[in-house]
Design a protein around this nucleic acid. Structure first.
Length: 563
DNA sequence: TCTGATGCGTC
DNA sequence: GTCGGAC
DNA sequence: GTCCGACGACGCATCAGA
């Protein structure tokens, strides 16, 4: 290590390799903690950067910066550097099962011809990646690739492996935020709870590690909630059953679960901002929501949360519509007419100071005191109180919710504080039982990582009135290791064609697929597709003539719409 | 100027 | 979003 | 219980290239 030029990227790569070589969380934590401590001692300015890079990120969570490079562009850049065709890279990637490993192999060959290189530093890698995010406009893809090319040309094969994975933000060394938090706590001898809280409130583990080292517990405790700065929303777990969940809480506040977009709304002085679950600012896309807030809530600093849905004649309509609104930049006024929004508020995080430690029961009361309801535009979530004795209140809410075209119910612990970014048992969700269809496998796509040498996703079809097969969805989740293997073995002899990572398969294997909802599809031959498809089992007991039909799908889709 | 591929966010 | 695997 | 990483559909923005 050279103190003038900063620490070499290779040192970080060694850490990645060590992390990858164990599956034990405690070991990973110690590896990271040791490294953080080392950086803290030798090159403290690098600590926030290294913390982010260890997570496989270039920017902190709250940042709106993005690289605009994913697998395809990256493959092109790799092809350029290695002097091969992009298709060769794709083949290699399929065989290696991972773009990082493919990069390592490709550059390994190339490197033998290279004479010498200037060693990469962590700083250099990070600053070049940050530069990529700033490039836009004409020839931007080319310029981005030039930066990658420069990095690759001075990278060792092993370094290239992790640069590619970092660009894709998929480091895949088994380290996520939980492990990083533990490591920061261990490295700088602060309590884990304090690290956790600081992270909740800032969404910036780089900052947290820096403060932990420089100012310790005192510094971390000073970080706090501020209107204008979004925090990660508290998340819900699946409820195993309404009664069981309510009993476990003692009593519960149950609310309709609306099928829309979760938003966190901040008022800071004169400014109102609306953030999504991943902390993206969508204020410009939903001007009417800002207006409703101006009208219905106090002109004081606050943070509230709710769900935005689309309604027609006061009734909720398909989730697909709201996707037309969230990230829109153009023709906003026009869409505002066509796709009207409604906001249901259900929580408050800040009002006359932080309220996240206030029990939910009381937060709700505060929220109620803040809001002047606007019919059809802004309301509080529909809420009932349920105890084990009158569990029917919750059960009725559930059936009413589904009948009304909503998604189910939330079951909330009245005593719980608001825990940003935590998915715990203080807030549960209960949705309708999924439906199932019997579909035939007509193709597939090879997977990555764990699924590198399997078909990681199956293309499925229904039959039409002429017994022709029409595609309707891909399914990948729901397969355990054993089924993954068995299916691969069944499918292998049926493959008729391979193009890149995709294969075509003689139709014969039938899968039972669960799904939450049928949706209109611009992509699949049947004109429909499935929301949240899950593989349940292989149907060896029926034959291909028995699979479900386009007609059936169509009739079920209409049922859903007319609810 | 238009279209398809790609990226990236929502669920 | 769902799910399975590892701890 | 918790964390992590496999993977699903859709729609808008952006950019390359016809």
């Amino acid at each position: 290590m050279n103190s003038k030029d900063g620490m070499r990227y290779m040192e970080l790569v060694d850490v990645y390799e060590k992390l990858d070589s164990t599956t034990k969380r405690l070991e990973k934590t110690t590896i990271l903690a040791d490294f953080f401590r080392k950086i803290g001692g030798e090159d403290p300015e690098l600590l926030p950067v290294v913390t982010l890079l260890s997570l496989g990120r270039v920017f902190p969570t709250w940042s709106e910066e993005e690289l605009g490079i994913a697998s395809k562009l990256l493959m092109n850049a790799m092809a350029l550097v290695a002097g091969v065709r992009p298709e060769d890279v794709e083949d290699m990637m399929r065989d290696a099962g991972d773009i990082g490993t493919a990069a390592e192999l490709l550059l390994g060959k190339k490197k033998q011809a290279t004479f010498f290189t200037v060693p990469l530093t962590i700083q250099k890698v990070h600053s070049n990646l940050m530069k990529i995010a700033d490039i836009s406009g004409n020839r931007s893809q080319y310029k981005k690739m030039e930066i990658l090319r420069e990095l690759f040309s001075s990278a060792s094969p092993e370094e290239a492996k992790y640069i590619t994975r970092t660009v894709l933000e998929e480091l895949r060394v088994g380290v996520g935020e939980g492990t990083i938090k533990d490591a920061i706590a261990e490295a700088f001898s602060v309590e884990k709870g304090v690290v956790e809280r600081a992270h909740m409130l800032t969404n910036d583990l780089g900052l947290v590690s820096e403060v932990a080292k420089e100012e310790g517990v005192e510094g971390l405790k000073k970080l706090s909630l501020k209107p204008g700065k979004p925090v990660k929303p508290m998340l819900a777990q699946l409820s195993p059953g309404i009664r069981e969940s309510v009993e476990e809480m003692g009593w519960a506040l149950c609310e309709t679960k609306y099928d829309g977009i979760r938003v966190q709304i901040h008022r800071s002085g004169d400014e109102v901002n609306i953030f999504t679950r991943r902390l993206e600012n969508i204020s410009n896309a939903v001007p009417e929501i800002i207006e409703y807030i101006e009208e219905a809530l106090p002109h004081e600093d606050f943070i509230v949360e709710g769900e935005i849905i689309v309604t027609k004649d006061g009734k909720p309509i398909s989730f697909q519509y709201i996707l037309q609104r969230v990230r829109r930049k153009y023709e906003i006024e026009k869409m505002r007419e066509q796709v009207p929004l409604k906001l249901y508020l259900f929580d408050v995080l800040y009002y006359h100071g932080p309220q996240i430690d206030t029990p939910f029961e009381d937060r709700r009361k505060i929220l109620e005191s803040m809001v002047d309801v606007m019919e059809d535009k802004l309301q509080l979530s529909n809420q009932v109180k349920a105890t084990p004795e009158d569990i029917w209140r919750a059960e009725d809410l559930f059936t009413e919710s589904l009948k009304g075209g909503h998604e189910g119910i939330m079951i909330k612990d009245p005593h719980a504080p608001y825990m940003p970014g935590i998915r715990g048992k203080k807030m549960l969700k209960r949705k309708a039982e999924p439906e199932t269809l019997d579909l035939v496998v007509v193709g597939g796509t090879y997977g990555k990582g764990k699924r590198a040498h399997f078909i990681g996703s199956y293309l499925l079809a229904v039959q039409d009135e002429n017994n022709e097969l029409k595609t309707i969805a891909h399914a990948a989740t729901g397969l355990d290791d054993q089924m993954l293997l068995e299916l691969s073995e069944m499918v292998e002899p049926l493959i008729t064609k391979k193009t890149g990572r995709r294969v075509e398969i003689v139709p014969s294997i039938i899968l039972e697929i669960a799904y939450s909802e049928i949706v209109k599809s611009p992509e699949y031959e049947s004109g429909y597709s499935l929301r949240f498809p899950v593989v349940k089992r292989v149907r060896e007991d029926i034959s291909i003539e028995d699979i479900d039909t386009v007609e059936r799908v169509e009739s079920m889709f209409k049922d859903v719409q007319t609810l």
